[in-house]
Amino acid sequence: MMKSQLKRWQKNQLFIIQNDQMLHGGGYSLVNAEMILLRKATEVGHYNHYHLLSGQDLPIQSQETIQKFFLKNSDKEFVGFDKDIFTYGDRVYYRYFFQELAGKRKSILKSVDKFLLKMQKKLNIKRNENIEFQKGAQWFSITDGLARYVLSKDEWIKNVFKNGFCVDEVFLQTIIINSDYTDKLYYSKSDGTHKNTMRLVDWSSGSPHVFRYDDLDDLRKSDLMFARKFDCAVDERIIQKIYEIYAN
């Protein structure tokens, strides 16, 4: 690392948070982890935006461009919405008692949860019927105001979403549409664009495409800030090239 790079990185701080709870795909533990991250970040200071990124995300603009963009839109929320009508009622109206143990993989516990779901429907055991829900991407960039508002809803979030299914894609969107923050969305249309989160994700194959070196031109042409996903086991060259282009 060159001295100029070292000096720049020394201005940043890295915090490692202890979390004893295992994270499971589709489980409430993912929401809990996001809440832990937001709580720590807001304790450290007041920031213009808090960005939730996965380990397979990379910036596709320079740091200067990214910072200028979010400063220009310092009062905007970057949260994705799939569509205008919520069609995922099974995720929030019923309880999944073994979701944290089963995860997304097929198992006997997954089968038990499916059976219990059928029984809840048959017996008309339903919850959260008076709440307007919405769904979208898990990844976001939100303002300090929204971050602290979300944290203030901690108990409500637990009561509504615990034992739900894949609620990490529902809880933030639901909070926003039931608040004044709806008016602060950078892009409020639910038309499949990625401008609402400023994250480039290619769903053309039905699941997130893993970017490769052949995708470099498309990545460089994009006016979005981040992209996912990347995997060094699939193509390490594209990751190295992104670093060469945007790290300085």
Rank of each mutant, 00 (worst) to 15 (best):
K241F: 03
L224T: 09
I238R: 02
I242W: 04
K189Q: 09
A247M: 11
I238G: 06
L219T: 07
S205A: 13
R199C: 03
N248C: 05
D214I: 13
N196T: 02
E236W: 12
L185Q: 09
A227E: 01
D180N: 08
D218L: 13
K195C: 14
L185V: 00
T197E: 04
Y181T: 01
D235Y: 11
T193D: 03
D191W: 14
D235R: 11
R199I: 09
R237E: 14
Y187G: 10
V210K: 10
S190D: 07
D183V: 10
R199P: 03
K195I: 15
Q240N: 02
D180F: 07
K195Y: 14
W203F: 02
D202G: 13
P208Q: 00
D218W: 13
E244S: 04
R199L: 04
T197S: 06
M198S: 11
I245H: 10
S207G: 08
D214N: 11
A233N: 14
I177C: 00
I239T: 09
Y213E: 10
L219D: 00
Y213N: 08
N178I: 13
R228E: 01
D183K: 15
S190A: 10
D214H: 09
R220H: 14
N196I: 01
T193S: 08
A233G: 05
T182H: 05
